[in-house]
């Protein structure tokens, strides 16, 4: 009850400016003006500088991305080129190896053939020599007795051994 009477009294006192939920007065234009001021202040303090930072970061990221993409492409190209070169080199190396192997084989074959020819020649020579010597020293089988044949054979072989150590 006390509340009520006090409230009524105050209401009566400020009759011309009594409160209420829907009391529209000078607060409205004042609020509008200070809101517009706030827009201006925040525009200068907040939106412009921070927006600039955001845009700069955006462009920074974008250019970096483009650059990175370019670099990636370049790197891929380089890698491809290296691979090609590597393959080329490998092929060349293979060719060189093959050529060298063929060369070596040829040389070896030549050498072998020459050695064989030489050996053949020497053998033939030795054979001829042997034949000649045996024709000179040794009688034909029919006109000699067996021991003499053996003896002469031994001497022949001894002689041949002496002349051809191989």
């Amino acid at each position: 009850m006390m509340h009520w009477t006090i409230l009524l009294a105050t209401e009566a006192a400020v009759e011309e400016a009594k409160g209420g939920l829907f009391d529209i007065d000078a607060t409205l234009p004042l609020m509008a003006i200070q809101f517009l001021l706030l827009v201006a202040i925040l525009n200068a303090l907040f939106y412009k500088p921070l927006g600039k930072v955001l845009d700069e970061r955006d462009s920074y990221i974008r250019t970096n991305q483009v650059e990175a993409k370019e670099r990636l492409i370049k790197a891929e190209n380089l890698a491809k080129q290296y691979e090609q070169e590597l393959a080329e080199t490998r092929r060349q190396a293979q060719a060189v190896i093959t050529a060298a192997q063929a060369d070596a084989q040829k040389i070896a074959a030549d050498k072998v053939a020459e050695a064989q020819r030489e050996a053949q020649a020497q053998r033939e020579q030795a054979q001829q020599e042997l034949d000649r010597q045996s024709r000179r020293h040794c009688k034909p089988w029919s006109s000699r007795s067996m021991p003499s044949v053996a003896k002469s054979w031994r001497s022949c072989s001894a002689e041949s051994q002496f002349r051809f150590p191989s």
């Binding site: 009391d23 529209i24 007065d25 607060t27 409205l28």
Partner: peptide, 8 residues
Amino acid sequence: DINTTIAL
């Protein structure tokens, strides 16, 4: 307050 919202 109604003034503020009406102003906005």
